[in-house]
Design a binder for these strands. Structure first.
Lengths: 158, 158
DNA sequence: CTTGAAAAATTTAAGAA
DNA sequence: TTCTTAAATTTTTCAAG
């Protein structure tokens, strides 16, 4: 899909202000509301822009602990990776999961109501491939910068 | 702020479908549109729900590399922490940053157009506190589970 | 919280650049 | 094509009960 300046502007605007009205968006990018809506629809159906999320301020809503977890597998087979991956995905408390290069195999971000519950999840992860999983837990102390979108301007060449 | 079942449902719905119309939201939670809108306004002004973000499918938009970075400071003073934190925040490519307990001090997620640009950012981070910063880079190979919101159901007690 | 009416936004269709 | 205009539909918003 071709991305001109207007579509780029639409993407970066919707990325940070998902609930903007189509009319305001049209004004900002300099299109009529109807052609702006057309563009948005195309970007959505081409899956360049996906679900729209509201960011919750979790500490104000309920007690919770957030933990960043590094995982290494002793068994480096594709099979073992697939098994761990599928199991991790199944836990709703695992809110994020990546496979990475370097000294670890996975990074996970886990959110639980309290440490006792986190510990239980931790045990479940260890049990996926008994004796083959190495986990390090890092409790989040402060969120210095929460994710608020990608820096499209610096990513796309002029 | 007190959270009844209805407000809870509003939060979890807006978390995953930020662009839902107020009318549909009202139907789902069983309120009239006007009282639903009132609740949403209150939740927003109490900052229980914050900015609404569109999730971009970055690989379909432009070339990019994503790197998860662990950081340890040799200088464990509050001053050093503040300095690193402020500098990291200033980089638009640092899309996420946490301070954590355990064997590292910070976790960062960095997104850059390519490895050359990533390397430059890496060097800049090392220069914040010369000789005092220990960085490990982990290039993201696959996103097993992207962040799509918190599991409110499992976090809030019945 | 609900109703109901006025204002605003969305969506569709027809036609011009 | 992609855009704009313009009209029909839907949604939002607000005052009153």
């Amino acid at each position: 899909m071709q991305l001109d300046n207007i579509s780029q502007k639409i993407l970066s605007t919707l990325q940070s202000e998902a609930r903007i009205t189509n009319q305001d968006l049209a004004d900002r990018v300099g299109l009529s509301p109807s052609s702006c809506l057309n563009r948005v629809r195309k970007l959505e159906s081409a899956q360049l822009i996906g679900p729209y999320l509201g960011t919750l301020n979790l500490p104000k809503i309920c007690r919770s602990v957030e933990v960043i977890v590094t995982v290494s597998l002793k068994d480096q087979s594709t099979e073992a990776f697939r098994t761990f991956q599928t199991a991790a995905q199944g836990h709703p408390e695992v809110v994020e999961c990546y496979t990475v290069s370097g000294s670890f195999d996975f990074f996970l971000r886990i959110v639980a109501p309290d440490m006792a519950r986190y510990n239980a999840i931790n045990d479940q992860l260890l049990d996926i491939l008994p004796g083959m999983v190495n986990i390090s837990s890092h409790v989040v102390l402060t969120t210095v910068k929460p994710f608020r979108g990608y820096p499209l301007d610096t990513l796309i060449e002029e």
